[in-house]
Amino acid sequence: MHSTTSSRMSFWTFFVLAFLSLAAAASGVWTFEDAQAVVAAKGGKADAYKFSPTKPVKGAITLGSRDILKVSLTVKEGSQAGRPHQAFLLAQEPESKVETFFPLSVKELSGKAKIDLSHKDLPAFLLTAPSLSLSLVLGSFGESAASIVTIGNIKPSLDPTAKALFEKQKQKDLGEGATVYKAKDEIRHIFRADPQSPPKIITLFFLLSVLAGLGGLFIVWFPILGGNLSHLPKALKAAPVSHPFFFASLLSLEGIFFMYYTQWNLFQTLAGMAVVGPVALFSGSRALREVRARREKGER
């Protein structure tokens, strides 16, 4: 029994180790083979350049305004043909490091990849550069490592008229001067200052004016307007809740306005008004209804 279990464990251990060895052998680095770059001109002779991951194209490839650079190769994952998740041709200006990418068209089964590049595909800044470095970027999900391989240099060739137009366009896109990347001026955000209260002397003047008006109103209320405090017990008996609540709500509203003027913001003031307002409306309607009932009886 013990020997049988040990033999089974040995078999499964050997199987797992063998599988891991095969997986490790299968995984590798994304690379390519059978690569060449062909410069095809309309009505002219095509020039072909061979290159590999270890041997880039010697010298610079001249790309005229009517030429088309055709790059073709076979993408491989380790020793097998494959299709990576990312396959780009990187064109970079060596001094400024300004670069752009061009995706390759890759077939899924055979790994055959190709791309065509002409003057219309290059930005104005790169098109007027003395020389561009070409690199191939391959990478995907999984254990295989990505790779960036320099495959050569191209030299865009422009006639004087086209070069002048592109230089003008480059200055328009990047701004005046030779610096491509430069620090911008500091942006300072200036927010509107908080509203200030008026001077205290003005506030005190209007406060005294309001108090004087209220005092004058109470002075003329009894002899001229017919104020009568003898009806207060009858009013409180007829509406014991409405009259006190209405009077308290009016004082609360004045207190809310005072707090808004001194400390509170608009949101706090609106919240207070939302609480006191309905109380004043409901109790005031009941209190004024009771007053009207007494007035209709001829009681003042």
Rank of each mutant, 00 (worst) to 15 (best):
S118N: 14
S118V: 02
H119N: 03
D121I: 04
D121H: 15
L122W: 07
L122S: 02
P123V: 09
P123H: 09
P123D: 12
A124T: 11
F125D: 12
L126Y: 10
L126I: 09
L127V: 03
L127M: 05
L127K: 13
T128E: 13
A129L: 00
S131E: 15
L132T: 07
L132Q: 06
L132K: 07
L132C: 05
L132E: 04
S133K: 13
S133L: 08
S133V: 10
S133F: 02
S133Y: 02
S133C: 00
S133W: 00
S133T: 12
L134Q: 01
L134M: 10
L134E: 00
S135K: 11
S135P: 00
S135Y: 03
S135H: 08
L136A: 04
L136P: 01
V137Q: 08
L138R: 05
L138Q: 02
G139A: 12
G139M: 12
F141G: 03
G142S: 03
G142P: 05
G142W: 07
G142F: 02
G142N: 05
E143S: 12
E143A: 13
S144Y: 09
A145G: 09
A145H: 14
A145D: 12
A146Y: 13
A146E: 07
S147F: 08
S147P: 00
I148H: 06
I148N: 15
I148V: 15
I148G: 01
V149K: 13
V149S: 13
V149Q: 11
V149R: 13
V149M: 06
T150W: 09
I151L: 00
G152D: 15
G152V: 14
G152M: 14
G152N: 13
G152Y: 14
